[in-house]
Design a protein around this nucleic acid. Structure first.
Lengths: 341, 341
DNA sequence: CTGTTAGCGCATTCAT
DNA sequence: ATGAATGCGCTAACAG
């Protein structure tokens, strides 16, 4: 970056301002001068310094994506959508793994703002996230992604978790299951609670014919937590014949627990997951799951954010619909089970 | 970002220069003035604008990571390492999905440079990548990651693919397999070829007792390509008793082909993958694979890059060792197979 | 349509 | 140890 706008101006016998106008496609430039300037640009191989430009315009065309962990397939898929849409719109995307650490997250946000990042997508936020509320009050451009903070004035891209839970419930009921279980994520993860609510309500609607349901809270959100929860589940008497897990990883853990216990899936236990990550496709049998449109969610998040950046305007809220993908881990309830082995 | 260094200077009754010195921890500031300035900073809630700073210093403390696809678990894991190490060193990380498109990649790089990105990590590069060579000649700070461009003067973090291939070969030989296959990625993917070379050489060393090996080139690098290759493989007569796939996804595809054909793994066919992504853990049985230290590779890549950014100096080359992780898809060759079903 | 004049917010000489 | 002056490379009024 050595040749500057000034060099171009001299080469083309015009002023800085004219070069700048050409660069920014201002309509107020005669075609012949535009060409002359363009030639000078090409000849000198001039490439505008966007840092200098950002200092004036206050826009870096950089957005940030904050996620708990980019190596988690769900967030990786979302990130793919975010980056794709950002690139399409002329933005680049800064990625941040914030884990669960609130202080770390605040520090990240602070540095990013000072670096001139135009706006952020939060793939992680608590229900009453102070940081989000502060940024929202300062009207810093934000999109929340798969996590809501009801009190904040920001864009949102959500998935109808309740509807997803209901889909799982109805699927299992239709297969004839009457003794059901759900494994939820620990603590106050809002989306997990919503999935449970939808599941419960759908069961309640159908409760006329003696449906029982038990709810287990896992001790984490990963495969190991699913395995532990699965073991507890399989020890229960009477044992549920079908289980809905709040995410795919938990479901996969439950599959492992079933294998340990020589419980056949789906013959002796039906399992439904949530997310539809690539992991669901490689289990054996492939996991029946409630699919979130991860990539599209990422794209939508960027589009809302950029819309806010460029046009301001009202904050938008997009609620996407999950979808049941029936694969190999669910089957009709069979009252009379053949002896195994 | 409304309060500037100038406001602080007035508040503390000093000049801009002094405030700047305090901000940059210059030793030439009296302790009492430093404190006075610091108080003014705190009182006003001043936060330095890093864009302005970058315009002077030419350093944004932003690095970019270019990968084919962040939703690919291998790159997601690498990205996790990159971002972690970057954060630790005070850098942020811009992520870019460049797919296989050379022109798109060049365009990305161009914009990133103009945005002042300090250096880049290439998780994708051809053997004689023109872009990498150009950047290298312009002495733009670069680290190549899992892909080499021999002629370039840049940092590198590589994995000993040849050694990995050899590990796979020796593992299978030790299990008594004598009729082997390898499924490679298509075209000129250097790492895949190296894995094949290591595999072949290890077999050659042991060739005294009649080892046969066949090499299949898959038509892609994903599960579908593995499935197709697996079908071809299982149709061969005599059929190989063990197969080494150039990556986990291909291996998973082969597992699926085996299932289709009622070929039991590992009883009737042993399968070894390469990478050690999370996907390898959730197949049934879990995939025996050659593990790359993905996260550490990402961290090392950043460290080399930042080292170059801060101290210049010689370009470094780190070669990491892969590791055999024996799981459930490999077993001893059994000449007399019991009738199945 | 084009040129002149000011900055954006900070770092960095060079004096003192 | 501190201050005054200058400029990083560009955009944005405001004239003309």
């Amino acid at each position: 970056m050595r040749v500057t706008i000034y060099d171009v101006a001299r080469e083309a016998n015009v002023s800085l301002a004219t070069v700048s106008r050409v660069l920014n496609n201002s309509p107020h430039v005669r075609e012949s001068t535009r060409r002359r300037v363009q030639e000078a640009i090409d000849k000198l191989g001039f490439e505008p310094n966007l840092v200098a430009s950002a200092l004036m315009t206050k826009r870096t065309r950089l957005v940030a994506l904050l996620v708990p962990d980019i190596s988690n397939p769900f967030y990786a898929e979302v990130a793919r959508g975010v980056e794709d849409a950002a690139a399409e719109l002329g933005y680049n995307c800064v990625i941040c793994n914030v884990g669960g650490d609130t202080a770390k997250q605040a520090e990240y946000v602070n540095v990013l703002r000072r670096k001139g990042i135009d706006g952020m997508i939060f793939g992680t936020a608590n229900y009453d996230d102070k940081l989000v509320l502060d940024l929202s009050r300062g009207s810093y451009p934000l999109t929340l992604m798969a996590r809501d903070v009801p009190a904040a004035e920001v864009n949102r891209v959500l998935v109808d978790d309740g509807a997803g839970g209901a889909m799982a419930a109805r699927h299992l009921l239709e297969l004839g299951h009457r003794r059901l279980a759900m494994v939820t994520e620990p603590g106050g993860i809002h989306s997990s609670q919503e999935r449970a609510r939808g599941f419960r309500e759908a069961l309640d609607e159908a409760a006329r014919d003696g449906v029982e349901a038990v709810y287990l809270e896992a001790e984490g959100s990963d495969i190991a937590a699913g395995l532990a929860a699965g073991r507890r589940l399989l020890d229960m008497t009477p044992r549920p014949t079908a289980v809905f897990a709040a995410n795919d990883l938990l479901a996969i853990g439950i599959l492992q627990a079933a294998r340990e216990a020589d419980t056949r899936v789906p013959d002796d236990l039906s399992v439904v997951g949530f997310d539809g990550t690539v992991m669901a496709d490689v289990t054996q049998p492939p996991l029946t799951t409630i699919v979130q449109p991860m990539r599209d969610m990422g794209k939508a998040a960027v589009r809302l954010l950029v819309e806010t950046l460029q046009n301001g305007g009202e904050h938008q809220r997009i609620v996407m619909s999950p979808e049941l993908r029936v694969a190999g881990t669910t089957a009709a309830y069979r009252p009379a089970r053949p002896a195994a082995n």
